[in-house]
Amino acid sequence: MTTTSVPAPTVASGLAALWRHSLAGLRVLLAFTVLLGLAYPLAVTGIAQAVFPWQANGSLLDAAGERTTTPADAAGSARLAQAFTGPEWFHPRPSAAGDGYDSLTSGGSNLGPNNPDLVGAITERRAAVAAAEGVDPAAVPADAVTASASGLDPDISPAYAALQVERVAAARGLTSHDVRELVAEHTVGRTLGVLGEPHVNVLRLNLALQGLG
């Protein structure tokens, strides 16, 4: 073991050392900024745009339900909820994103589990959904009365979709059997049998409805 003599540290020598190391740090940081802040994301962008252009540009769908990468042609993103209020459409979950489904203000209500305002909002939504669908309030599932985490949840539960079938069918002059089949086609189960929950994509389902007439 070698013992080198180290001068006693002073505030001035400490600051001088910190300055020296900060300059080295700045050089390293600038180099990393070029590598990690420009080269890496641009390379990933290049590959993504070449190999997965639809996904990389936001999974946009046009009014006919076809994939597009041009926002001007799009009627929405398959991955983002948008407002549907008319009786002829399946409705998404409540949204706390901005004034509702605002993709520039994603987020949830962040209301606590015993917050009286939240309990009030849930009770109101339950009554409203029950009235709109003509069902018993107790039959309304949880996802229909709660705001999602993102405010842009593109999916609803199969239970909430089933609840809306009669109304949508009546508004469109379709048989509820046909609409129910369409819902079944658009229901995605758990991935690998255990991941996540079964769900129905509202925009895809609504765009497909147009095909039924």
Binding site: P113, P141, T146, A147, S148, D155
Partner: peptide, 12 residues
């Protein structure tokens, strides 16, 4: 009130 703790959670 909701029937499950789905406030602030995503369906999928």
């Amino acid at each position: 009130a909701a029937g499950a703790a789905m406030e602030g959670k995503e369906t999928r």
